[in-house]
Simulated scan of single mutants.
Amino acid sequence: MEGTVALTELSTALPAGQLSSLGEAQVGRYLGTDWEFVYRNGDYLLRGMAVTIVLTLTSILVGFLAGFPAGALEAYGSGYSRAFVRKVGVLLRGTPILVIMLFTYFVLPIEVVLGAAEFGLRSVEFVLGPAPVTVPTDVPDAFVAATIALGFRSAAYQSQIFRGALGSIDEGQMEAARSIGMGRLEAIRHVIVPQALRRSVPGFQNEFTIVLKDTSIAFAIGLGELLKRSHDLFTQQTTAVLEVILFISLLYFVLTFGTNRTLDYVSNRFAIPGESS
């Protein structure tokens, strides 16, 4: 109790900057100067973690928006559309993500991509009304390139997840839907797709984790995500390489563990009744 009172009095007596210095001194005293260096630059690394989280979310969203229609085309499309989607998927899955990212950053015209995205959003607004989001104009080119690379590579894998989920639905479901007067597209939309989305959660969970870890590849094009910022730090103090790596490994573990536990809950919450999750 006395120690708590003393600590409270100390915190009220010292300004925030001196409290921070006191914390650094304690870390340096018990763990060494290298961990003190990591502690002092913790905010810098946490901002990199924020970039990693946003990059993961945007890439997964792009992958879903492109991957789900691609999976549906592979499951129900005609010969030409199915063959085209399959060939593009094989190309993306067979190309290293680093090569794809370098291509999108150094070859792909980012301004044209942003212009096309803004035009598409305005078209949607014209048809459906004001959209809840706008295309930002100050996004770094490296972030856009990394999102495109990770998103479309993820789409190639997500398409297979959704194709398998759609194919796993018993044909009797389609026949039952058609027998009560639904058209083919109505049956797919209202009967097949809801069940397939639920069955695809475990595979989607794995893909989400892979994309999260693959964001570190954006280091190659200079994006200031978690790995890039850690590299910036241990080039300043080379004796703290191990400590910085251990700290960012802990951050990656927290992110992947939290993501897996969240998606486990989603999988259990929306599992098809009667099926084991």
Score class of each variant (00 low, 15 high):
V144R: 04
A165M: 04
V135N: 08
I148K: 02
T56L: 12
L98P: 00
R163G: 03
D34R: 01
H190R: 15
F247N: 02
G203Y: 01
F219A: 10
P15D: 10
A117N: 01
L197Q: 03
A83Y: 02
G120A: 12
A83H: 10
L227V: 13
T215E: 07
D170L: 00
A25V: 01
F219H: 02
L10H: 04
I100V: 15
L233G: 00
I53E: 09
G224H: 07
T95V: 11
R82A: 07
A116V: 14
G164F: 11
D43T: 13
A16E: 15
V211M: 09
G258I: 04
T215K: 08
F152H: 01
L7M: 08
T12K: 14
R269K: 14
V27C: 08
G151W: 07
L102P: 03
M1E: 11
F162A: 14
R198F: 08
F106A: 11
R198A: 14
Y252I: 05
G172W: 12
L61G: 04
L166H: 13
P136E: 11
S267C: 08
T262I: 13
L263G: 00
I221G: 11
Q195V: 05
S168N: 10
I97C: 07
R178I: 08
Y30L: 14
P109R: 02
H231P: 00
P273A: 06
F253S: 06
P15N: 06
L46Y: 11
L46D: 09
L255Q: 11
L10C: 04
Q26N: 12
G167Q: 12
A240I: 06
R229C: 03
L98D: 04
F84P: 01
